[in-house]
Design a protein around this nucleic acid. Structure first.
Lengths: 258, 258
DNA sequence: AATGTTGTTCGGTATAGCTGAATGTGTGTC
DNA sequence: GACACACATTCAGCTATACCGAACAACATT
């Protein structure tokens, strides 16, 4: 583990979490480093446009370079590329917003977002990070992880986002077993009050989970007696289609899910 | 300049340019470094999810962390936050796609993108990087840069994207002078065949140029005799509005542009 | 005007990371 | 099926590198 790179990455994370503009001293304090050390790292990151310094205040923030890299990541993502087509048709079919996501550490990050096909103004959530334990996408992914990685995910902090967020390891383990046997996950106001989600896992070659696809929207609509089962069917079908595109299903233990 | 961080940043750039998946050897060759050096850097970046290794092939690609950072950058961007509202109304008024961009090195990167308000399927271009010399947004920004930075921009490589891209320093210098005096920039099929752009600079406090806003779309529509002048007026008005929101116009040399 | 901040520069020192050679693993070829 | 190649990875020694404490300069506040 290369120390200076490690520290540079920590700086980027700190600048990306919450407060958008920080001074050298504050960053140094948060990371427990000497001021000149942080300064040198910042200057190097600045040269690559990964951070930018406000000429007036002297404070630092993330730079445009990280956005470019984020875009390049999306361009190179197989999962995203293969899901574009199916996400679009799922959104039409379900008449709901569709998200495609993958796991990063203990958070689920949104790779693709199709707006609900009404004409309301919606915020694009691509790049957003959501604690895995609070959303259907996260449950769908973690439930299908190899046991060791699943344990690791359960070891993360399980802070509640709403009053209904599952936060105990027991409740989550039970929910995951349920997700694994059913082949899909349902979340009801565990991430955002009023919103629910239905998601199913996407498998890649070797039948490892690569991510998940699902619908997100008003709990009233998604979980209504008539709509729920049909949405589940559509989501599972979309997940299977993307998995097939990625080359999954050629032998392996999880075939029954497909 | 901290060497290892510098090299780590170069690795990220290489992984973000073109080929999405590269092996250790190939990266080492491109950067002129020893294989184990690159390996160590990659392992460190991997620990922070900035790169990811394909478990099958062993090759490396950018990781989900960079997407999270890109999203955090957008969340913290004043320019973007202030332009959301005005971009939306400009798109309605012009009935064209609207882009807001800022300069990063010799490229313009798209911070916000409002789709053209017809119901066609469009690709979101947020995070896309375009050589500044090939688009109206770039001309609008560079024309209003301090002379030293403008010279630096003109020193970059000016590769043509279409047959109409301006590539000589003379032609560009002339175009920029024109943009500076007119207060807006027009580009006709210089970036993409069939597409044109109209853009105006956004100024921040101290009347430094912070970015640009403009419309992009079919050259036939944008440059039609009847439409052109009205679009220019709308774009310039939107740029002024955002500039005002950012606090520009309190004294300074560029007031006439406003 | 004085004092507390801030971001920045400098130079010595110890450590951290670079390099070359060697290992292990999988792939393509004869 | 055995070979050779290419690849990612590991190791150990040396050197260069990046860290830190202290001092500086600019600024805002009192």
């Amino acid at each position: 583990m290369i120390q200076s790179v490690q520290r540079a990455a920590q700086i980027l994370v700190v600048l990306g979490s919450g407060t958008p503009r920080l001074g050298v001293t504050e960053i140094a304090d948060r990371l427990g480093l000497a001021k000149p050390t942080v300064h040198g790292l910042l200057r190097t990151l600045e040269a690559h446009e990964l951070v930018a310094q406000d000429p007036d205040t002297g404070k630092y923030s993330l730079g445009p370079g990280v956005l470019q890299l984020g875009n390049a990541y999306l361009d190179g993502s197989d999962l995203r590329a293969r899901s574009l087509r199916w996400a679009e048709s799922l959104a039409q079919q379900a008449n709901e917003a569709v998200w495609v996501a993958t796991l990063s550490g203990s958070r689920v990050i949104v790779l693709h977002h199709v707006f609900r096909p009404d004409n309301t103004v919606q915020i694009l959530e691509v790049g957003a990070a959501i604690p895995w334990h609070a959303c259907a996408l996260g449950h769908a992914i973690v439930a299908n992880l190899p046991a060791s990685q699943r344990a690791q995910a359960l070891a993360a902090d399980l802070a509640p986002l709403t009053g209904r967020t599952k936060t105990t390891r027991n409740a989550l383990t039970r929910a995951l077993a349920q997700v694994r046997s059913a082949g899909y996950a349902i979340e009801n106001e565990e991430a955002t009050v009023g919103d629910a989600g239905i998601a199913a896992p996407i498998l890649s070659r070797d039948d490892l989970v690569a991510g998940a696809i699902g619908v997100v929207g008003s709990a009233d609509r998604l979980l209504a007696a008539g709509a729920r089962d049909e949405l589940v069917r559509a989501v599972v079908a979309a997940a299977r289609a993307v998995s097939r595109d990625l080359g999954a299903g050629r032998g392996g233990v999880s075939l029954s899910v497909l």
